[in-house]
Design a protein around this nucleic acid. Sequence first.
DNA 1: TAGTGGTCTAGACCACTCA
DNA 2: GAGTGGTCTAGACCACTAT
Lengths: 233, 233
Amino acid sequence: MPSDAPTLGWQDVQAEALRRIRSRDWPPGALIPNEADLARELGCARATVNRALRDLAEAGWLERRRKAGTRVAVAPVRKATFAIPIIRRDVEERGQRHGYRLLSQAVAPAPAGIATLLRLPGAAPMIHLRALHLADDRPWCLEDRWLNPAIPGVTGADFAALSANEWLVGNVPFSGGDIAFHALAADPATAALMDCAPGAALLAADRTTWAEAVPITAVRLTYAPGQRFVTTI
Amino acid sequence: MPSDAPTLGWQDVQAEALRRIRSRDWPPGALIPNEADLARELGCARATVNRALRDLAEAGWLERRRKAGTRVAVAPVRKATFAIPIIRRDVEERGQRHGYRLLSQAVAPAPAGIATLLRLPGAAPMIHLRALHLADDRPWCLEDRWLNPAIPGVTGADFAALSANEWLVGNVPFSGGDIAFHALAADPATAALMDCAPGAALLAADRTTWAEAVPITAVRLTYAPGQRFVTTI
DNA sequence: TAGTGGTCTAGACCACTCA
DNA sequence: GAGTGGTCTAGACCACTAT
């Protein structure tokens, strides 16, 4: 084994650890050496080992507990990460021209499901928007959104000119939320808008977003047939 | 402003930075102070600031470039992370009993689409598996998989007893791959297996996985109606 | 209580890239 | 060339937890 004169970086340490995991040198469930020992063995500082192993633990390869030490995960839970850009950028990054049409805007009592989701009182009045996003003039995505009218500035926004999606990104700092992907069959109205057959299988994403404890919006994005969400792991 | 005597941790620094971003104290696109200045201002070491800001950059809030400094992202690209557990665990974590039935197993030339995806020669013989996963005896997920027969040990595996999904996790170290979510309409055969109406909208995930440059498997997981992939951002 | 990972520090050098 | 982030080091203390 040639001695590696240049100092080891954390990426090297991580690669070496991954190699040992994959080669079953450190089999699933096994306790691996502690950070201090590894640092000595590899000839680097403990902080470097820590950085490498911490990242592996976050990625699901290792399970670490103080005093108990570090174990190789038995069933590594892989994680897939999806980027959620604003819709216009999503379209433009595919080299297509983004178009946008506001279909309707109204103030209406939120349906029970939406109100519950946002933890608002039963029939609280909210802003209801429906809009169609286009890619090269073809239907891309239907946006069905309920907006909390208490958001500063929201009543003055012109959603015919700028989509709520984009307005929110630029004007409302949000802290969190959740997303659910699911499949649904196109109802007749949606099918007409999407230029597809009624009953066609469509991919949809339901999102709710919050600024701290204040509900911002609940939106369903229904994508045109054939669309896929792709990622690399 | 009360002086915070206890030393600031990186999480505190991160929270303070996020606060400044959200309050528009650091508006979108703005250059923020460099690490050394921030460390002085906040009374901690530069490494602590680095840890905090590095994480914010990974999360999409900041854009960092050497010499150019750190800027607040103009359109923060939020990222959603999905855990991809093995199917049995997924079912069990919902408090249901996992069942499994191997429907068919055969060696057959891979369809052109699959072979291309895995960069294998046109009609390369592969192992084709079809299996149904059950949750509390109800259809949960249909697994349609093509396996590279060159994988060590694969020809001796008993996929009637242990799903390929689980066998692979335990026996084949894989380095990467990709996933695509999409919606499809249930064909008659699938509908019969899934106990749903033909044409029903189903959520599906297509995965390919690799061990370094060696293709391992291509699989389509088709989920029973009503299933959702949920995550928090 | 003792062993382990989690974190902070002060300093240093390097890599990148803007001007 | 010079300013910035990226990383490493050696040492220290702390927080958690298995025993």
